[in-house]
Design a protein around this nucleic acid. Structure first.
Lengths: 211, 211, 211, 211
DNA sequence: ACATAAGCGAGACGGTACGTCTCGTCTTCTG
DNA sequence: CAGAAGACGAGACGTACCGTCTCGCTTATGT
């Protein structure tokens, strides 16, 4: 009886399906023409939706794309820490590389390129894609140093950037990206592994990895 | 009096001063708003020039910016090959880093970001800025491997990309770039230098064979 | 038990108060901005009512205004036929002129103007305002001719139109309308009265008509 | 040599052909749907012209239609004054009636209807169509009174309005308009002609006026 | 009493037109 | 012919209503 507060708002609900087609259309246009190629008018047309329906959801283009990226290109995944540096690094890189090899790759690369100019885009991108990867990688490396797997003088901050730097460098320069890239990067990082008193278990079979 | 050659076309000459103000305006607009922020209309307005005056010189935006970059941001420099890997690598990186620290740095980074979408821009950019640096770096590394300075199993192709990848990664992610970065990169690359049981055979005979 | 006719439908009744505020709002908007200035959206807003509440009652604008006019501006009155042509004609015109002098006058004039384009509006307007006045006036004139008060060659059809034509001409052209107008029109019509063999009893006092 | 002032402005001239197609399109849309049916967007589309091309010429709809009317429906003609009241009145009415019988008639009537609400439209309409006709008619009637052709007590101001009032009343009420209407109106006005001491040369043949 | 059904406020939806803006091209004039 | 000025077709911008529709609630029966 005592309806303290009726939380239900009056009026028709927004159609959740439209949310999706709008985001899809936005992402598709972005893939085609980059940030420049996206217009709210165009998104509405492509989504088969009235302009007002888009404007009702997003006041400007940026949050629309931000949402499109968050919802459609989410790359967040578990950050591994098994103690096996090689495996952990590979596990960090693989999802990104896999994604770059799909059609979404073009979108991701475009996004990476545009993010320089679009702070909002960049922020969201960092959150959902790059996220805490760098920090996590740093930690993995620090642990490896502590365990003695990597030399004490390793420039952890720098090395931690190498995977992302190389991968995005490839993506943005239209250089080939393939499954072997991750392994080559890991091999490079582990090349300075402390080999002091023992054999190098990975040397014998480390030859045919270069694709 | 004797017009030996009538190469002189009739009509008014193009005003060379306008060439300059146009390029300046283009670069300034690019710095302000990136590729998106540049329009021939805007450039003309900023240069205090009629639109046709710009269009007469450049059919589209790309060659205009390409020219602006070539003329105003030329980064071409000597590719060093002294035999001192450390010094050579540093010499390769320093001009770029120096430039990135000036106000032009924003322009360069923006250019680097936009080049993903603009093949023409990318081509010119590669020619005048990145140029043959990658190939040259590869050669330097190969020579170092040949001299035994670097381990035989060094992934030369990958390592050669590290300097550019790291520097641009910093530039595009608004990470700090400072003079020490080049040294850190070189140190990292040389960390795997063969130091095992002997002196450094390359020091005494580090001659200047490659020009 | 035997619900011979279950005319009473279930469900909530329409709120009769809303009928009124809707019509009032419609008429007010019409007075402000003419047919163009009326929109169902606007009427709903002005009436403080949901759009659907209006649309439930009137499918389109026309019947809404038609109702508003019928209910609020009814001009139907007795059509006099006393045998006194002068008095009868005056009695025909007076209610309209009186109404045109009230604030409703603007609404009526607007309605008269719009009716050209809006057949539905025109039909209702004719029914409730103009009605059978023309035909009645014709009859009065024919009778006057028959009685010999008007010349036999009188163009009854034309003369019967003069009162309405003049009055609406004034209304639509923003010309002054005043109480004397009706008298002037009657005087004009009676000017051709047969004066052959007798005095004109109404002439002596026919001077002060011009207001 | 002394170019005191170069009145010629620089820049491309407005295309006079476009002036015409725009006005034609506007008039056509008006004929189809009345003032309500005209939109600048629609005019541009119908004229095969960019919106800006219309907006460059007319800030809003009203002056556009005003111009369309002025240029395309000009009804200005000589105001006759031959001393023959009958002929002069006929000459005044005939052009209007003729026009109303053409396809333009619908446009004119619509315009007449809309003018009530659109002061700008009305002003232009009065200037180019109604213009000084009323005043001229008044003068003709005054002269006729002075010559003794009309009774001294004629209500000149009222009678002068009859032609226009009747004709527009017909037009706005979708009543038939035909060539005979002008004659009937003139006959009516002359019905009160002073016939005192002379014959009425036009009476005998005044029968076939009803078409 | 309580399901049924309509009324109602609110507002989402696909549209259309608004008036403004900028784009790259085209045209006309002056120097 | 170069250059300034600006008209032009094209089309996106963001706003405002249009008329329809879908909600969640309220109100009145009819069984």
């Amino acid at each position: 009886m005592i309806a303290v507060e009726s939380l239900a708002k009056p009026g028709r609900r927004r159609d959740p399906q439209l949310d999706e087609v709008i985001l899809d259309a936005a992402l598709a246009m972005f893939a085609d023409g980059g940030y420049r190629g996206v217009s709210i008018e165009g998104v509405a047309a492509r989504a088969g939706v009235a302009k007002a329906t888009v404007y009702r959801r997003y006041p400007t283009l940026a949050p629309l794309l931000v949402d499109a990226v968050r919802v459609r290109l989410c790359l967040i995944h578990e950050l591994p820490d098994t103690g096996d540096l090689r495996a952990d690094l590979l596990a960090m890189m693989q999802p990104l590389i896999d994604r770059l090899l799909t059609p979404d790759g073009a979108v991701l690369a475009a996004l990476m390129a545009e993010r320089f100019r679009e702070p909002e885009l960049a922020a969201e991108f960092d959150r959902s894609i790059i996220g805490h990867k760098r920090e996590h990688t740093r930690m993995l490396l620090r642990n490896a140093v502590a365990r003695g797997e990597l030399p004490a003088e390793t420039d952890v901050d720098l090395v931690a950037e190498i995977p992302a730097a190389i991968i995005w460098h490839h993506a943005l320069n239209h250089l080939t990206i393939n499954a072997g890239l991750a392994e080559r990067i890991v091999d490079h990082i582990l090349a300075s592994a402390v080999t002091s008193s023992n054999d190098l278990p990975w040397v014998p079979d480390g030859d045919e990895r270069h694709t």
